[in-house]
Design a binder for these strands. Structure first.
Lengths: 137, 137
DNA sequence: ATATAATATAACCAATTAAGTTACATATAA
DNA sequence: TTATATGTAACTTAATTGGTTATATTATAT
């Protein structure tokens, strides 16, 4: 399962993307605005920083901002950064050869199903999400 | 995540489907042939029985057989029976309205991604898997 | 300078879930 | 009537998830 943390990270990035460029927003403000536990925001910003997507400036009047283009960050990338490799079944994590032919063809199907899912998530960027927030629901 | 139990159930059903009609196979034989813990086979056969897909006859020379047409059982159905409702994110389980618009559009994307995955799993039947076991890998 | 507001980092914890086990009950063919 | 098979339920253990706590570090406003 895609964890809540990954979902939070996506929301945090979308929040940052919807802010005027050049301005910063504090972790606390993000946490309050998007109803995410403050400590988790901080924790996840460490991940996004590590990925090179965000930077923070400390001290009073400090805050967080995006470093790059949110149109170039897609949902799959964020999920993988936060949760690690994606696998809809345990089977897809193992690198050992198939146990038998049924198992092997099954693996191909898991793989196909997962690719179908990921192709959707790859197509949606953080920018898309920031834009969507303006549309009707 | 799709659990290993669901995967086992699929393998068990495929094994049953690849047996000559009218014959039975014991739980123990299935367990050994497919390298699934015997107790899990028994546990999962309770689920497939409940679903109306298998029946067992007890006593010596007893065993398990399919009740219906394996072409009419698809992978999604089996997964849902064993694991319960499928959801690639926690979000998709909740029935509460969206917290905000970003969250809402995000939910739509999760939903779309999940549907893409499920449409693959819906298309593959137990019969397909039993047939595939004969093909090359 | 220094107090304060902010990010940064790491370790910790409780609840849930996954995977498998154990124990026992029931039915039936030989 | 006994051995062989399925059926049912409760239990156990390890990993994961979601979140908390604690502490360190940095930079600005006064």
């Amino acid at each position: 399962m895609i964890t809540r943390k990954a979902e939070y990270a996506i929301i945090i990035l979308a929040e940052l993307a919807s802010h005027p460029e050049g301005t910063v927003i504090t972790s606390k403000a993000i946490a309050e605005k998007r109803s995410i536990p403050f400590n988790l925001v901080v924790q996840l910003l460490a991940v996004t920083k590590e990925a090179g997507w965000t930077t923070g400036t400390r001290g009073p009047s400090g805050g967080i901002r995006l470093t790059g283009d949110p149109a170039k960050i897609n949902m799959k990338q964020v999920i993988e950064r936060v949760d690690g490799p994606i696998g809809i079944t345990r089977c897809l994590f193992s690198k050992t050869p198939c146990r038998d032919k049924t198992h092997c063809s099954l693996r191909n199907i898991w793989s196909e199903a997962q690719l179908a899912m990921l192709s959707v998530l790859e197509k949606v960027s953080i920018q898309d999400l920031a834009d969507a927030a303006d549309d009707d629901c």
